[in-house]
Nucleic acid binder design. Structure first.
Length: 376
DNA sequence: AAACGCACCAACCGCGATCGC
DNA sequence: GGCGATCGCGGTTGGTGCGTT
């Protein structure tokens, strides 16, 4: 069909924004809202395309933007979410509400990605580049488990990111303000909104599994839902093992065992006339990301440990910079640790051990996760 | 002091998704 | 349901500043 030109229009300005332009855009949006971005530039008296205005507003002028150095906590969140979501910057940004997707993307590309590479970790897969380390000692299956766990968590967080956005939109409307501020976020009167939505997703998974039992050909679901469902099943097959029938029963039984959350007594809840399995404790990593209240975060929070290990290692590497000559014979060590007189060998071994232990620990967590956590 | 390389980040571009007629 | 318009996302580019040679 051919796209309509945007920034190619003759007479439209490109490049860096001037303070005057910023002022015009800011003043217009504060008074009228952005409305149609396409129509905004002419109304605001700007010689820019709508796309450029939108970007400038979202990435720079919006009042609720936090600028400056990323905190350790933010780094942790980004790494965790990137391991699960990949380059879905907007989804990641929904968990760092005051950071823009562009800023997170830039920070990843300029800092975090390099840090992982430096540690010998593939920034795309978040796996060590030297995979022989894993396959030779029986850890291969665990790596596969981790991958499936990530797939499942990825799909879950994607759905949640969407929900967060929807929730924000709803919260803009006067009618929903009362509901959102208390019932949804603080969960004073029931499960948070995101729980309700994820219950539906969860039900979808269960429906799918049931369909598989009754009818092995189920092709009408959407792509995203299918991915979710497949992830769930394959993960269970790998970690728990057994047939699909067993999987369904185990999922129901397992989620029903949790009774420590205030809304859970029987293991099932009735929300919006739907009987659903309680799954609060599947909200492990995300609970931590979204809230400081970790009272019902279960044991075996694998992502938490995952990033702690990475950051611990990176902090260590930040403090200790090692430079080698080409023949690896001359090692210059600069270390501001207050350890008395660490030898080059000690530090070097320590860094290597940390990298090794990093993945060993993750794999251990994965191995122990079914008994410790019902995230899956 | 000039040239060069690198890091950082704002902004651009193209594409897929979504909206609305 | 089809189609064009618009939006939003993620990859990439280009300008700027800083350190090194």
């Amino acid at each position: 069909m051919g796209r309509s030109p945007c920034c190619d229009k003759v007479g439209l300005k490109k490049g860096p924004w001037t303070p005057e332009e910023d002022e015009k855009l800011l003043a217009y949006i504060q008074e009228h809202g952005h409305g149609s971005w396409r129509a905004l530039p002419s109304k605001a008296g700007l010689q820019r395309c709508g796309k450029s205005c939108r970007l400038r507003w979202i990435n720079y002028l919006r009042p609720d933007i936090k600028r400056g150095k990323f905190t350790l906590q933010e780094e942790q969140t980004i790494i965790q979410l990137h391991a699960l979501l990949g380059n879905r910057w907007s989804a990641i940004a929904t968990h760092l509400s005051k950071r823009t997707d562009n800023e997170i993307k830039n920070y990843w590309n300029t800092h975090l990605k390099k840090r992982l590479i430096k540690m010998g970790i593939d920034p795309v897969s978040h796996k060590p580049k030297n995979d022989t380390l894993l396959s030779n000692d029986g850890h291969f299956k665990s790596t596969a488990n981790l991958s499936h766990m990530a797939q499942w968590e990825s799909a879950r967080l994607e759905a949640e990111a969407r929900l967060v956005k929807q929730s924000k939109v709803r919260s803009m409307s006067p009618l929903s303000n009362k509901v959102n501020s208390k019932t949804c976020l603080n969960s004073t009167f029931g499960p948070p909104l995101r729980y309700v939505d994820m219950h539906k997703v969860w039900n979808g998974i269960l429906d799918h599994n049931e369909n598989k039992i009754g009818d092995s050909e189920s092709s009408s679901s959407t792509l995203s839902t299918t991915r979710l469902k497949e992830s769930s099943t394959t993960f269970y097959e790998l970690v728990v093992g057994g047939s699909n029938e067993e999987i369904v029963h185990e999922e129901y039984e397992d989620v029903g065992e949790y009774k420590d959350h205030k809304n859970i007594g029987t293991g099932r809840q009735v929300v919006n006339d739907m009987t659903i399995p309680a799954m609060e404790n599947t909200w492990t990593s995300t609970e931590v990301l979204l809230s400081n209240n970790d009272q019902h975060v279960p044991n075996g929070n694998f992502l938490e440990h995952f990033t702690d290990l990475l950051l611990c290692s990176s902090n260590f590497n930040d403090r200790c910079s090692l430079t080698r000559g080409d023949d690896h014979s001359d090692i210059d060590l600069v270390c501001d640790d207050k350890v008395s007189g660490p030898t080059t060998e000690t530090i070097n071994n320590c860094c290597e051990d940390k990298n090794k232990n990093y993945w060993d620990n993750i794999l251990n967590m994965v191995n122990s996760s079914p008994s410790n956590s019902l995230m899956f």
